[in-house]
Design a binder for these strands. Structure first.
Length: 304
DNA sequence: CGGATTTGACCAGCGC
DNA sequence: GCGCTGGTCAAATCCG
């Protein structure tokens, strides 16, 4: 299964310089930037504007390069994934015996649920389901990778929902602590999330969502609510295949909110319609638009 | 003062 | 049964 052809690695948020270039010829962009300014622009202003255009070109090239890298990574990931799937199909027993993790952790690590292994020991699975009424086979979960500032030591993953931290633990396989959150709508909302820094990359937060929100997204309930820069972790589309979403918020904090959101959908299973919903909700958000306008005008003023 | 966060204690599952 | 580990509870503390 080749997902890479179906993945659009750039969100069509119209904040992408690369997209800007694609949609508008360079001359036109140049013209628009100039016409945006005061008509009687001085030579100095024109120089800074051309510098801005140069900068834009450079960023576009960089963005294009990154997009290509991402596409390549996606292709590699998909081929590895299909290989793994094939391997798991051929060796279901090995897979099962090799997973020494606990039931909950095995589910979080996206290994095949026990009931999915198709083993003939139906009695044992029945026994398990009897012992564990809270068997989480039905509980959907997803992983979200969030890139943050390396200096950012917090374990905050802003996804728009409100969370209440109820615990923190240092786990054996990762020196950085794992934080446990419950949805603030609990107990009516059963969703939990775990946030821990990646072992490989300390600047990456790994948020594991468990369950589905049984209430609308806070941004839909309170349109005036503050930071809405996160994304819904697609809990509605959660499946046993653990959708994975990677966000890059390394710069969203340093300047204006939202302008540097570059979500990368690593999960081909996430329907395009969801992505479009996310984009739509972002573009409809007045705060997002205001932040975008402020960011653009600020950048232009800075360069002029 | 009320809600959120912190943190040590406790509990349950699992392997030996 | 015991120890290890992850997950949760709840009292203490913090903060707006």
């Amino acid at each position: 299964m080749d997902y890479s052809s179906r993945i659009n690695t750039s969100l069509d948020l119209n904040i992408n310089p690369h997209r800007l270039h694609e949609e508008l010829p360079k001359k036109e962009v140049e013209h628009n930037f100039f016409s945006l300014g005061v008509k009687k622009s001085s030579v100095k202003e024109q120089q800074s504007s051309s510098a801005l255009v140069e900068e834009l070109k450079r960023v576009s090239a960089e963005n294009k390069k990154l997009t290509e890298m991402l596409t390549e990574m996606c292709e590699n990931y998909n081929s590895m994934r299909s290989n793994l799937m094939e391997y798991m199909r051929k060796n279901p027993d090995k897979e099962q015996s090799s997973s020494k993790k606990r039931k909950s952790e095995s589910s979080f690590n996206n290994s095949a649920p026990k009931s999915m292994n198709g083993n003939s020991e139906s009695s044992s699975t029945d026994e398990e389901s009897c012992k564990k009424p809270k068997e989480d086979i039905k509980t959907p979960f997803s992983k979200v990778y969030v890139r943050t500032e390396a200096s950012d030591t917090g374990l905050i993953v802003k996804d728009g929902y409100q969370w209440r931290k109820y615990g923190q633990k240092v786990t054996r396989d990762n020196p950085s602590p794992r934080a446990y959150f419950k949805c603030s709508f609990a107990p009516s909302c059963p969703v939990k999330k775990k946030v821990q820094r990646s072992v490989d990359d300390q600047s990456v937060l790994v948020a594991t969502y468990e369950g589905e929100h049984n209430h609308p997204h806070p941004s839909q309930m309170e349109p005036t609510a503050g930071s809405n820069r996160g994304v819904t972790p697609c809990s509605g589309s959660l499946s046993s295949s653990a959708p994975t979403v990677t966000l890059d918020w390394t710069k969203s904090k340093s300047s204006t909110d939202s302008k540097n959101i570059t979500p990368k959908m690593e999960a081909p299973q996430i329907p395009q319609v969801l992505v479009e919903q996310m984009a739509t909700s972002l573009t409809k958000d007045p705060n997002f638009r205001a932040a975008l306008v402020a960011a653009i005008s600020g950048k232009m003023l800075h360069n002029n």
